[in-house]
Design a protein around this nucleic acid. Sequence first.
DNA 1: GCTCTAACTTGAACATGTTCAAATTAACTG
DNA 2: CAGTTAATTTGAACATGTTCAAGTTAGAGC
Lengths: 226, 226
Amino acid sequence: MAIAAPKTRRGETSRAVILGAALDLFQERGYEATTMRAIADRAGVSLGSSYHYFPSKEHLVLEFYRHTHDLHAEAIKPLLAREHDLAARLRGTMRAVIVTCEPFHAVAGSIFSTVANPASPLNPFGAAAKPLRDEVVALYGEVVSGSDARVPADVAEMLPLTLWLYQMGILYFWIFDKSPGRLRTLEVIDETTELIVRLIGLANLPVLRGSRRRVLSLMKSIVDRD
Amino acid sequence: MAIAAPKTRRGETSRAVILGAALDLFQERGYEATTMRAIADRAGVSLGSSYHYFPSKEHLVLEFYRHTHDLHAEAIKPLLAREHDLAARLRGTMRAVIVTCEPFHAVAGSIFSTVANPASPLNPFGAAAKPLRDEVVALYGEVVSGSDARVPADVAEMLPLTLWLYQMGILYFWIFDKSPGRLRTLEVIDETTELIVRLIGLANLPVLRGSRRRVLSLMKSIVDRD
DNA sequence: GCTCTAACTTGAACATGTTCAAATTAACTG
DNA sequence: CAGTTAATTTGAACATGTTCAAGTTAGAGC
């Protein structure tokens, strides 16, 4: 059920032109208001041709995801190279998510819900999304490992995955955010990233050690089971 | 955009019979596989008639929500009357959620995603869902207030809302749970409810007081803003 | 250059959520 | 009981995601 890879140069061109049209239209009109016929028209191909490359309208969303992830990863490269304070790295990374996704704010809601469906092949927890999910988790791994913070090994193991979840939470908040310049979300990012880093620092307190072990082993069992 | 209330006895009957057919079919075939035509057929009315009472297929879901909430509230009454230990109350309440929703497990995925859409009138954070949301939050308020746990006032204020969110998280986990008898989710409930209660107990620790204040004021500002 | 095959393209056809103008029903008024 | 009106009911029509059988193209092998 994977997206069929083009086998010829003509195919590659068609695929690219369809995807480009889709991304444009999603941005212009939103996900639901963009019809497959409109995408085909804009791309200059027939309706059926679109379905040759993308099994469904939803599958175009996965490409949309990849597109924004690539933009995001590119955007934070300088930050990750320069900055070594964990709070600053995390804050910068999250801010960049928001900034990168801003052009798609209007679309994001319907996309989010489309993708939240566990039956959807595009569900972030599912198999089809694994390559991209792994990339995103790895990116957060780099945010942590490239910092000078001393993170206990058991925490460090689960942290990237946790931050990936955290990013989804922030994105869901951002979808609802109607404040000018999405300042509200930026405030929440500043506040929560600092809290997260502080909490990591507290994880070594003797009183918290028991709970921490339980939280981590619970998370581990959930991840491993799937 | 609210659901049109019937004005005559005939109307009441029609509405009830349509809703009943929808709930049955959702259970039998799932949300997506249930067509509006099938609902109308089963109810013995015409397609257009269904739309007279329910503006969209999604609106039928809200009724579905209310239905399960009522079942749930009824199911935990004895527990809440008898038990006063917070952990036990919370555990029992969450277990009852899963048990109550079990017949709808197959449907729950698509419903969840439908409802997760911020543009949907049924979004749990939106206006249309407010009456039901308030009821659910109030129920968790009772879970807390009826217990003998000593909860700091500022924590107690945000706790019901937090538990409502927690319930949604558990439900999302449950949707993915394919273990026999949904035992996996029950385990997670047992583990997390205990962690929550323990965390509440820790909230008074001097080292945590600062973070606690910040978390709570952040949550408060988010809730008040909306 | 010819043939063959796989890749690609096409548009009609289908299913389903939704809309709407017209028809029907029931209840109230005189 | 006749007339009026509002509620209800109907089914045809529309838009859009998706499928598919048939047609077209381009490149590999000879």
